[in-house]
Structures are given as structure tokens and as C-alpha cells.
Design a protein around this nucleic acid. Structure first.
Lengths: 187, 187
DNA sequence: GCCTTTTTTTGATTTAGAACAAATGTTCGC
DNA sequence: GCGAACATTTGTTCTAAATCAAAAAAAGGC
């Protein structure tokens, strides 16, 4: 149970068997179909999800249009708004494949981070990593053409490029679906 | 000494007089002229700076062109690369006004974060805030026009818009200097 | 105050990618 | 296996902003 989740955490920092058991004891296995809204508009979900299997995407709704900010096929997905600011999320998360996840209450997650040094370290590091990814993506948006950004994305997240559909990838790259189709068509 | 720095920290979370004194004991007051490189290419600086007065900007050099990622007129400036990854920074920082700052070694800063709960909390919160700022800026880049982004920037950082020069603001917004000039000229 | 350097404005031209629209291809439920 | 829904390709037109270039204005040094 949670084998992939725990393995992934151990690639980042040491997690003892006790901590792994602690994590298992406070989470609940959930299965979600494709297109399920894990964190959605107008609902204060209060859960975070460790992704065991499947792919999710996070996005904003900006006057009706979706802006994808990240894809996750491992690690944890949660809302910063809910976790740190006790408010309903402005960023939503949906599954784009069937997903097996382990659900945890955000209050519980926060408590773990405050009390368990292994999880606290893991938490700090995933925050740093996420900040770096965003930093990098921001730089690419400012300096690369649509085509170059897609090439970068293929290098960095080949899996996502295979598994997500064009519309989602395009909205992550900040271009239209038709432009992405043309880019892929070759030039 | 460090009055503005400490006051700014106290707007974020409680800082006891002991912690303030601790901070004063491990920092050194420095004055820098305009255009001074605080964190520069090819030099593993190993220092972070609490900004008491003046304005700085952080930027990348992407094949010769500067891409401004943030301005700071308060708080702390440091390199994530140096702090977390023990490597020379890929992002540089220069003063764009005369700056009064308090210098601290990054190893010392890390040690404070690991041992002093007040500073640790302050550190976590500035990281969250910085992440949010970047997140927001990224969304704006993906959804707003050049003009709208400039309007947003004036709302969020009016001081910076007054004090930084056009080239720097333009490179922060991801547009050319001439476009920004035209935007300001009115339309 | 005058000259140099830096910063900002303005002009003409070009271009990447958006918008809109329709056709083709793929997946899935029954 | 057929029809509906969904995903992708392709065509045409249009526009925001880039590029290149030069003039005007402002700031600094001595």
C-alpha cells in the first residue's frame, strides 16, 4: 500500500518505516475516474492527495478560459490557498487519467509537517522543487518561442507530452491548441 | 540599526528582541552604490542581504539578454542556488539605487532557519509569499496583454514603477522597452 | 554650465501567434 | 459496429508586439 508514493518520497529524502506507517495510518485510498475534479471551484475541499497512479492537472479559470499550471503523476497535489491561507482554492485540480490516490486532510498534513522531521524535510524540498520548476517555466515563457517551449517541455516532461491531450498541453504552454498542432505537424 | 529590516519582519510574524539582537550580531552593515552587483556571474558569493534602504533587481542573463525576475526594496535577497544547492547562482542581483544592506553568510542564514523558530517561521512565510508572487506573475503573463500587465504592476508595485527605469520594468514584464514607452505614452 | 552618457520617445516595417471556422480523425458507450 | 462526443488538423485573416533605427530628453561628471 502506497508503495509508489513512499518510494518517490525516498528518492527525495530518507523516510523511515515508522514514518511510512504513520502516513499510511492517516490516509485513505481513493480511486477516481478520468475528468474527476479533485479540487474544484466553490468547494473548500480540505484534502490533499498523494498520487500513486494516473495523471492530474492543476489549472486556473481565468474568465472562462483554463490556464494549466502543472501536471502531476506522482508526489502530492494540494491547494496552497487551502493549506496556508484557509480559503477556498483559486486553483483547481482534475484527473486527466484514472487516478489512484491517498487522501489526507490538509490540517493533518500541516500537523505532520510541524511534528515529523522527515516529512517536514520532504515538505520543504518539494516546495523548493516546485518553486524552481515555476521559476524555470516563467523564464521560458519570457525568452522562448512557442516551438522552443514545446521542445523544452518534451525534454522535461516526456511522459506528460505522451499522456495529456493537446488542449491541456497548449494551455500549459500559453498557446492555442491550433498553434500547438501546427508546431507538432513540424514547423 | 536594522530598524527597517526588523520592522518589516515583524509585519510578517513575531520577532522577539532576542532574535533581533541575534540577527544584528551575525550581520554586517554594508553600503553599495547604484549598479553594484550583489550576486554576480561566476562568483560564488555566499552572502545574503537584508535590504534596509534602496532598491535591487534580480535577473537572468539569457544569451546576452537580461530577464528581470523581481525587484526588492525590503526583506532579504539571496540566491536559491547558493542557499539550497551549493552552487554558483544562475540568477544575479544588482542594486538599481544606492543600497544600505545587512550582509549575512548563507550558511549562517541556513543555520538560523534550522535553529531559531521565529526566523524559521519568517523564512517559511517569505518563501510562500515569493511563490505566490511568481505564480500570480506567471498567470498574468499567460492571460494578460502587455498593457494589462503593466497596469497590474503599477497596482501591485507602484514604488518600483516610480523608481526603476523603463528597461528594467520592460524586461520584468517580458516586453521591449519601446513597447513599454508606447504603453505609457497612453495607448 | 557644458559635454558625455544614459534613458526615453517616436517612426516604419515585419512577424509570431491569436481568432475564427470547418474538416478530418479517434474514442467510447450501448 | 454504429453514432455521438471528443480531439486534432488545417485554412484564412488579423493583430499585438518585435525589430530596427534614429531623434529627443534627462542625468551625471568635472
Amino acid at each position: 500500500m502506497m508503495t509508489r508514493v513512499i518510494n518517490d518520497m525516498r528518492e527525495i529524502c530518507p523516510i523511515s518505516e515508522e514514518t511510512a506507517d504513520l502516513l499510511r495510518s492517516v490516509t485513505r485510498r481513493r480511486l477516481f475516474p478520468k475528468k474527476h475534479q479533485l479540487i474544484k471551484e466553490g468547494t473548500y475541499t480540505k484534502f490533499a492527495y498523494f498520487i500513486e497512479k494516473g495523471l492530474t492537472r492543476s489549472f486556473w479559470l481565468v474568465d472562462g478560459k483554463e490556464v494549466t499550471t502543472s501536471f502531476a503523476g506522482r508526489g502530492i497535489v494540494f491547494s496552497m490557498d487551502e493549506l496556508y491561507y484557509n480559503k477556498a482554492s483559486e486553483e483547481f485540480v482534475e484527473t486527466i487519467e484514472e487516478v489512484e490516490a491517498y487522501e489526507i486532510e490538509v490540517s493533518c498534513l500541516l500537523h505532520l509537517w510541524e511534528t515529523n522531521i522527515e516529512l517536514s524535510n520532504w515538505g520543504r524540498i518539494i516546495h523548493q522543487n516546485e518553486y524552481r520548476r515555476l521559476h524555470r517555466s516563467h523564464k521560458e515563457l519570457l525568452t522562448l518561442s512557442a516551438k522552443e517551449r514545446y521542445e523544452q517541455m518534451k525534454l522535461q516532461f516526456p511522459e506528460v507530452c505522451m499522456r495529456a491531450n493537446l488542449g491541456d498541453i497548449a494551455s500549459y504552454l500559453g498557446i492555442t491548441l491550433s498553434t500547438l498542432s501546427r508546431i507538432r505537424a513540424n514547423k
